[in-house]
């Protein structure tokens, strides 16, 4: 029998930080199975979603139910990121050495 955990009741409607999910994970028992009821969780950071992905794809038996559209999209972004190579800018950002405050001011005002 899977235990259902209501995430909104535990953390509110927004999962802001990775730490929140880490704390949740630490409270779970590896021998048990869980359903995380995500109804009412309307916002999630990418970091929290990444940690949630770790939790649901790791050694523990944890699944999500009732995932709201925003959270679903963020989880999809995380999932996609796991399988695609990271895209990075091919152009270098110039590093400009400013010896004086005057140089800094010049750079700040130069477009």
């Amino acid at each position: 029998m899977k235990q259902i955990i209501n995430i909104q009741e535990k953390f509110g409607a927004e999962l802001h930080t990775r730490q929140m999910v880490e704390r949740l994970a630490a409270s779970l028992n590896a021998a048990d199975s869980y359903l995380l009821d995500m109804s009412g969780v309307m916002q999630i950071s990418r970091s929290a979603a990444d940690e949630l992905y770790n939790l649901t794809h790791g050694d523990m038996n944890v699944d999500l139910i009732n995932v709201e559209p925003f959270v679903e999209k963020m989880l999809s972004a995380v999932k996609l990121g796991r399988f695609l190579p990271r895209q990075r800018s091919t152009t270098d950002t110039p590093i400009i050495h400013c010896e004086t405050i005057g140089n800094v001011l010049q750079q700040l005002s130069a477009r």
């Binding site: 950002t93 110039p94 590093i95 400009i96 050495h97 400013c98 010896e99 004086t100 405050i101 140089n103 800094v104 750079q107 130069a110 477009r111």
Partner: peptide, 10 residues
């Protein structure tokens, strides 16, 4: 929009 740079500050 116009610039991207890193300043190494004094």
């Amino acid at each position: 929009q116009d610039t991207k740079k890193i300043l190494s500050l004094p």
